[in-house]
Design a protein around this nucleic acid. Structure first.
Lengths: 377, 377
DNA sequence: TAGGATTTTTTCGCATTCGAATAAAAAGCC
DNA sequence: GGCTTTTTATTCGAATGCGAAAAAATCCTA
């Protein structure tokens, strides 16, 4: 038996991440993934198995040679909480140590909710999850709307909760739960969700498009989520619309390309028309029966996406939010329209796809935050 | 005397970079900058001094305590070549080991130049530099126009040199010069120039604006130059113009916001009007005597910069190229105009400044590439 | 069925890196 | 001037991580 003590907690955490993601399935592949030597990797794996974080799940014969001893995470080792909220509701998920989604929780917030109440509701949601989840709570990720200073653990500003300014979320939640708490802007959390639960598995460059009540995006470049120097990257929603509008005349893109506005245009009703009970099903109904506005709507999205792609040149645009109900056809129309508008896009590898994650992508992303930040004590 | 052998060449290179940049001036500060222990740092410094890369230049008394033994780079330890080119000319600089610019070289290219000739001319430029520079040539950086695959060492495509497709520059130059050759797109090279020779010293997030014959930008986010998934980040020049133009109608931003086009608009002459002999002086003359188009021109730039800032949210926009001759006033007008057009920019820390680097920023940037890549044998 | 061939894992000695303590070099203070 | 305080640099033992080689586990071939 080897007996070196282990100290590099961060490396242990990274090792678990590699195994959980399925990128590393044996000691040797793990060594390559982590960039450390096989001998050291052996020590780390021994330690993680001894601590019941990993286990060996049989052999896996390659085309030749000694079969690899498959590694996998121990689902019961503990769980991660992911919470996302906005002014209307809180969504929370419980994810086991293997990254499996085990429980979801939703809680509606009253109108004019204040920061204190949001924090208490988050705590209540997590408490509700914890009775059903196995093992200890390991860490909590929170997808926060508006401006977020992830490093400082602050919610900086969010327009739709009155006193949401400089809220020390990490401190207030962490002091109660006694586990690490990690924040991120909710759009950027969705980007992580895509990495762990969706299409982003092997992708290093992609953009999340999130048209809901506004229009936000999140960018992943070279595997890293882009924050911006002032935590405000991706504020496309604050572009003027139309793009060349005069100073005072136009409105903002937030307003023009939001999900409700898009539904109204596709449905061919006026600006004041009532929205359907459930926007998602309302949109789904429109997916096939394209109104006369379909092309114009797609062209507007194409314009925005095209401009974005020419700047940041990522691989894939992943559509989130209610508009995913418009399906592949919507995404194809956008791609085609973009290439027609901007010839440079033709051989630039532009691709728009609807997310396969549902409504709780934000909460899943928050759980991803928690998973990425965790490392053994 | 300590006597451990040293192996981590990359760390040695990083140490030299820290000292050269002035960020680390003593063993202790260097240890912090590199994130390694003071004892190990001592060993590394000993080694670098023994190899004549660094030297101790006296003491530097702080407010209290033992004075630090100042470290500095040995200018004569060797030199770096930086080369930038386009279809018209090659510019090259020789930079000593301390990062001091020692020589510049320029070479005009004939019309319809081909790739082979460009490569030979680059070699000729470097040869010319090498007779005057002290010590051995350590590495060569090249700022390449068009699409570049820096990792593969290929010039992928450049529209203005006929056969410029998949040019294996690193191989062809490296095999002759027998030193490491590093490529980067010329705009992104300028971004590095700004870091080493200009305003970018302590900056981690900024954008280079390069309106010349076209309009390219380069972005630095969190200290890293953004390449894009397909090496095509920053292709703002290929935005349609006007931005909401119909598919076939409009032209590209490249054309509308280039330096020549801007001169013509400011000078109030037609699209076909002859350009001045030297565009830089021509623009300088216009800096004060603002024509009636001044505001409209600034507004167009403001529009582009504003959109960019809302997406990537970097700190500073650094204006390069001939338009720097329009001076601070131009930059201020742009900033003001942008804030007027997009209210969201008002408290977003938008700043536009003219670069203090001159015409050879690209070559300096290429030299920076060379410096960043070098580490002792 | 024995002997390569191939790939994964482990063993083991060694050397680099670290941490803590020590030494060194100055300033401030009585 | 001797004392403490403060900061920088070095010494030295300990140990972590590495490399090379050995061991292990399977397939292929004759």
């Amino acid at each position: 038996m080897r007996k070196n003590p282990i100290v590099q907690r961060e490396t242990l955490g990274a090792a678990v991440l590699q195994v959980r993601s399925g990128r590393a399935t044996s000691r040797t592949t793990l060594a390559k993934a982590l960039g450390i030597s096989p001998s050291t990797t052996g020590l780390y794996v021994d330690h993680l198995i001894a601590e019941k974080y990993l286990n060996e799940s049989g052999l896996n014969q390659g085309p030749m040679g000694r079969p690899r001893r498959s590694l996998s995470t121990q689902a019961e080792a503990g769980w991660f909480a992911g919470v996302e909220f906005n002014a209307q509701r809180i969504q929370a998920v419980g994810v086991d140590f293997s990254g499996g989604l085990k429980m979801t929780e939703e809680l509606l917030l009253p109108a004019d909710v204040m920061a204190d109440q949001v924090i208490n509701s988050i705590l209540a949601c997590v408490a509700k999850l914890s009775v059903a989840m196995q093992g200890p709570l390991l860490s909590v990720g929170i997808g926060v709307p508006g401006l977020v200073d992830a490093q400082a653990g602050l919610g900086l500003y969010y327009a739709f909760i009155q006193d949401w300014k400089q809220v020390p979320l990490v401190e207030r939640i962490g002091s109660r739960l006694k586990v690490p708490v990690i924040l991120q802007n909710n759009m950027r959390a969705i980007a992580l969700a895509e990495r762990w639960f969706g299409i982003g598995h092997g992708l290093n460059d992609y953009v999340i498009l999130g048209p809901r009540s506004g229009f936000g995006i999140a960018m992943v470049q070279d595997g890293r989520v882009v924050e911006g120097a002032h935590h405000a990257a991706g504020e496309v929603g604050r572009w003027p619309w139309p793009l060349m509008a005069a100073a005072s005349g136009g409105q903002e893109l937030h307003h023009a390309l939001s999900a409700p506005a898009t539904w109204r245009r596709l449905a061919g009703v006026g600006e004041r028309a009532m929205l359907p009970e459930d926007l998602r099903t309302g949109l789904a109904a429109l997916a096939e029966s394209a109104g006369p506005e379909w092309d114009a709507v797609c062209e507007d999205y194409a314009r925005v996406i095209g401009l974005l792609h020419l700047i940041i040149n990522t691989g894939v645009f992943v559509l989130h939010g209610p508009l995913t109900m418009l399906g592949e056809r919507f995404c194809h129309s956008i791609t085609d329209s973009a290439c027609a508008l901007m010839p440079a896009l033709r051989d630039a590898g532009l691709k728009v796809v609807p997310s396969t994650l549902g409504d709780n992508a934000g909460a899943l992303g928050a759980a991803s935050l928690a998973m990425e930040a965790w490392s053994p004590a």
